[in-house]
């Protein structure tokens, strides 16, 4: 894990200087949120629709930034350098951690903003936060492995969204379902099946991604 953390710190340092991925995700999220709030105007939306909108913003914000993590290495021709000095395992965990931290940072800004703009109460904030955190893990793991797959392709931008969408769809569906409940109900028992399913998805995707990464990276 020491080497993964070294790669993560290197990526953070680069990101703080270039802000390529952070700007991409944050600007997309803020612009989408603003566009939705203007188009809705003074209409009151029910919380079911708001839950779906929140997760759509999260999904597309993640899609707009996740691919940077490997694209940048390919475009600046540092991918081979990294291959020579670090193991695929260390690279995968370092990149996954970077994408996760980046997404959590954006969610930390966007989610409170979303709640403030649409002015509603979250009845079960604890479960809502757990859902957002699990969703971020699932999206980051799926997004990181797809980013590695498309890094060497020529039409990367389009490919990333097309390939990532089916892999990330379960997170969105479960995220919307649990968020809908969290916006309206407080009883924890109502959340358990979906939370278990989301946690299981995260475990499966993270494990599969970790096992597959070496083959993708070395190919």
């Amino acid at each position: 894990m020491h080497n993964s953390f070294t790669i993560f710190l290197k990526d953070i340092r680069q990101e703080l200087r270039s802000k390529a991925a952070l700007n991409s995700i944050l600007l997309f999220a803020i612009v989408t949120l603003t566009a939705i709030s203007f188009s809705i105007g003074s209409f009151a939306l029910n919380t079911d629709i708001l839950a779906a909108m929140l997760w759509i913003i999260i999904l597309f914000s993640a899609l707009s930034g996740f691919s940077h993590v490997f694209l940048k290495e390919e475009e600046s021709r540092t991918a081979d350098t990294l291959k020579l000095i670090a193991s695929p395992n260390d690279i995968f965990w370092g990149k996954l951690l970077f994408n996760l931290v980046l997404l959590l940072l954006v969610l930390f800004i966007i989610v409170p903003l979303f709640i403030a703009v649409f002015n509603f109460d979250v009845k079960n904030p604890g479960m809502f936060i757990i859902t957002i955190a699990l969703g971020a893990i699932g999206l980051s793991a799926g997004g990181t492995i797809v980013a590695a797959i498309i890094a060497k392709a020529s039409s990367r931008g389009a490919l990333f969204s097309v390939l990532a969408f089916p892999i990330l769809l379960p997170v969105i569906i479960l995220g919307i379902t649990i968020t809908r409940i969290a916006f309206k109900k407080t009883e924890i028992v109502l959340f358990i099946p979906e939370i278990q399913a989301l946690a299981a998805y995260c475990v499966i995707v993270v494990t599969a991604a970790a096992l597959l990464f070496e083959y993708i990276w070395n190919d």
């Binding site: 290197k10 680069q14 270039s18 600046s76 021709r77 540092t78 081979d80 350098t81 020579l84």
Partner: peptide
Amino acid sequence: KNHFSLVGPYLQLYDEL
């Protein structure tokens, strides 16, 4: 990889560092 190094025109270092 623990025993060799390579210098080549196709290997770049990190510009932002």
